[in-house]
Every structure is written in C-alpha cells, then in structure tokens.
Design a protein around this nucleic acid. Structure first.
Lengths: 234, 234
DNA sequence: ACAGCTTTGTGAAAGCGTGCACAAGCGTCA
DNA sequence: TGACGCTTGTGCACGCTTTCACAAAGCTGT
C-alpha cells in the first residue's frame, strides 16, 4: 500500500472504452445488479473478457477474485477517473443547423455536459433561444467561458469557419475542443482536439456496403471463402 | 498488368481515413488545385506523409513519381472505393430529439446520404414532417426499405429501445447500422454496425481535462516531466 | 482447517498500425 | 540522350493493442 497515487498512464484505447463500461454498468445498476464479472461485462459490451480486466486494472485492483466487481463501486471509480464527478459546462460555436441540433437534443446535459452558452457571428441568429440557451455573439466568448469556468468547446460551424472558431475558443481559454465541422482544425500544443464527422461514419458503412455488392457480383464467378463482418455477438 | 481486380483488403484504419482525404482533396479541388503531393496532403490532414502514401497505395498506384497525385482522379478513385459514386438513402428509426436533430440537420443529404424515411412507434409523432420527410410507423419499415432500396439504417432512439430498433432494421433487410443511441446493440453476423455516442466523445475530453487539473495540482509538489498533448501541428 | 470452484490480475506472445529510410521511377532541362 | 532532382511505393523495425494462459486469491461447504 504505497498510497493511492498510482503510476498510471492509461492507454488511449482504454480511455475510449471506459465510457462504454460506465454505460453498461449504469444500466446494470438500474437493473439492481450489484455485482458483475469481467466475463459478464465483456458479453454485454461484445468484447474480450481479458481486455475488460486489463482495462479495469488500470484503475486499480477493484475486483474481488472469485467474485467479480462491485457495480456501484466500479461506477464510482470510472467516473472519478474520467473526471465525471461533477458537470462540465460546454460552449457551442455555431448556431446553424448543426448547432441547433446539438443543443436542442438534450443528450449533452443529461450526461453531465450542460450547454453553458451558444455563440454565432450572424446577427439574425443572435438573441434567439435554442434549447433554453440564448445565442450570443462570438465576441462574448471569453466572458462566457470565464463566467462559467468552461473548458470544453464544441465547434458546430460550417467547414470553412471551423478553424476560425477553434482559434476563438483557444483565445477564450478553452483547453478541449470537440469538432463536429467537416474540416481538420489545428490547435496549439496542449489543447485536446477530437473530431466527429457524422458523414464520415456513413462513408465507412458505405465502404462495407460497396464491398458486399462487389462480393455478391464475384460470387457468380467464384465462391467467396472468408468474410468477416463487424457485427457483435448475435 | 493482371487487370484491375487487385487483391486488396484495405485495413480498417485506412478506411477510416479515406473519407478525410476525400474531404481535403475536395477542398483543394474547389480551390482549383489540380495536383498534390503526399507531403502536402499530409500537412493538410495533420498526419504523416508516409501514412498517406501507404493509405493511397491500397487503392492502386495512382500517383506519379516526381509529381504527386492528380486531385480530381484521386477523388474519383476514393469515391469509387468507398462506394460513393451514387447516393445511399438512409432510414432513421426514432423521431425524438435525436432523430429530429439528425434529420433536421441537412448534413446527411449534402454528403450523399439523403434521408429516405423516418419511423417511430409513438402515434403522436407519426404523420409529422421533419426536414421534409413524413414520420411513419415502424411497421412500415420493410416497405420503406424495399421501395427505396435502402441498406443503411440509423438508430436514434433512447438507449433502451435501441436493440429493438436494430432488430426491426435487420428484419426489414438493412445490412448496415449507424447507432447513435447510448446502448450497445448486437446484430447478426454480416451486418455492419458502427456506434457514435456524442457523450462518449465528451467523456474522453473530460478525462484529459481531469488529468490536466491533477497535473496542475501535482506541479506544486513536483515538476511534471513529460506531457503529451493531442493537438495537431500548431 | 482445507479442498475445490470461481474469478481476478498480469506476464508473455501474437497481431496490427505507424513511421523511417531508400530504391525505383518519372519529368525536366541541357 | 543523359544527368539530375523530386516524389512515390514499400520493406523493415518499432511500439501499441489485443489475446492467451495461468498463478494468485477469495469464497463456500464440509
């Protein structure tokens, strides 16, 4: 017992999976399951049990051999590691279709990321309320960020305006950016940037559909031996 | 020259990057750039040039040594590989906040994935028009799918209803699913499933924010040596 | 107290993705 | 025609991720 300050550097791949475990565990908690094994958790998530154990082991040794993990305790530990013990307000840049969709959809707030502000450059958008939040001018960004102690910014502008939005966010003191705009943005070292492009996901599916079509054509000529799908356990 | 039927099995990581290249190339094409080197493309995307070349080499040898790649031709080749030579209609299951947001946001149609139908189970949602498409009952799914030859389904239901939605989609003949619901779904072998959870992305950012805060605390005790950010080239 | 069953935590191996470095190839210019 | 400069395409090595396999450890029942 050398104290709780463990030398942990959680691999990025594991960090990306922790929210999934958290979700599954929360579902189980709601279903009044108090204890769960890595095998069960793996089955729920459609992944390998050893992977689950290794992932969880980065948090510390919170399981009990022969028994499994205490659901509630594990939820708390994952939340603590992910920094989800308190809400993080976010500010959205861009009040067009995408920005309205994101803030109107209440999912952010429900999951601990309430919308603390929306800004835009267009005068005819400013002043309108979206999802209970009034749209303000992008020049007020720094003030919004500071008054609510916001560190996460969401870019929901058209592609060409994304870099400018990113620059504004950085200037306002934001340290993490979630970019929904169809453009690659650059940010100074030390700023976390993640990109989500809904169309990209569809294009990846399109690729697999395309292959399926090609495979069907080829079948008339020659039997196809191996074909690995991406589906989870049936 | 043994013909165009190359033995290609494109790595998943590469498939996920092809849409990004496509985007960058399209931007360049609009800017009337006709030729581009892997180095330039890499700079635009914030990635390694060797990676770009290796990725593109999976499509075939479409570059010219000493010169680079023809932008327009490369766009066509990527589109062909991704199956983007024609539109893919999609059907959305769930007309709640998320479903409305997704279909109201016109980004799908703009990028070659027009919304071919929206279904829900709730009688008070059916009949309403969202983004120009009328909401129909989930029982009509098979008919919608067949009439428009749709193979991609989008799940935009609440978490608990996601699996049922997936089952309905599969029963209706869908072969690819994009799941926006906060739940892990399982599908039969051969069905492609991708999951996008907006909250998960924020949680990953939250983790890095959390670490930043912890690092700041630790600074008062001991200097922090290494600290790798995720930002692109400044 | 101990045997037997269950499940964790983790070393080690295998697999996959990334980036370097360079030969091969293409265009240009004398 | 030949030499030179530039850029592609790719072999190879490295590092990260996944998976296997098993010892260590806890619980239960006798």
């Amino acid at each position: 017992m050398a104290g709780q300050r463990t030398r942990r550097r959680i691999p990025e791949a594991t960090v990306a999976r922790l929210p999934v475990y958290l979700q599954l565990l929360s579902d189980q908690f709601d279903a009044e399951v108090t204890n769960i094994s890595s095998e069960q958790l793996a089955a729920l998530g459609g992944v390998n049990a050893a992977k689950v154990r290794k992932d969880l082991s980065y948090l510390g040794s919170y399981g009990t051999r022969g028994v499994g993990y205490d659901v509630e305790f594990l939820i708390f530990q994952i939340k603590r590691e992910l920094g989800l013990t308190h809400d993080w307000h976010v500010v959205i840049v861009g009040a067009g279709n995408l920005g309205q969709a994101l803030s109107g959809y209440g999912g952010f707030g429900e999951r601990g990321f309430p919308v603390g502000g929306i800004v835009d450059v267009s005068p005819d958008k400013i002043g309108r309320a979206i999802g209970g939040v009034r749209v303000r001018h992008v020049d007020e960004l720094a003030q919004i960020v500071q008054s609510r102690d916001i560190s996460i910014g969401v870019i929901a502008t058209p592609g060409p305006a994304a870099q400018e939005a990113a620059d504004s966010l950085v200037a306002a003191g934001i340290t993490s950016i979630l970019n929904f705009a169809p453009a690659i943005i650059s940010a100074p070292h030390g700023i976390s940037v993640r990109k989500v492009d809904l169309a990209v996901e569809l294009q990846i599916l399109s690729y697999h559909e395309q292959r399926r079509v090609n495979a069907r054509k080829a079948t008339t000529l020659k039997a196809v031996p191996g074909q690995r799908g991406r589906g989870a356990s049936a």
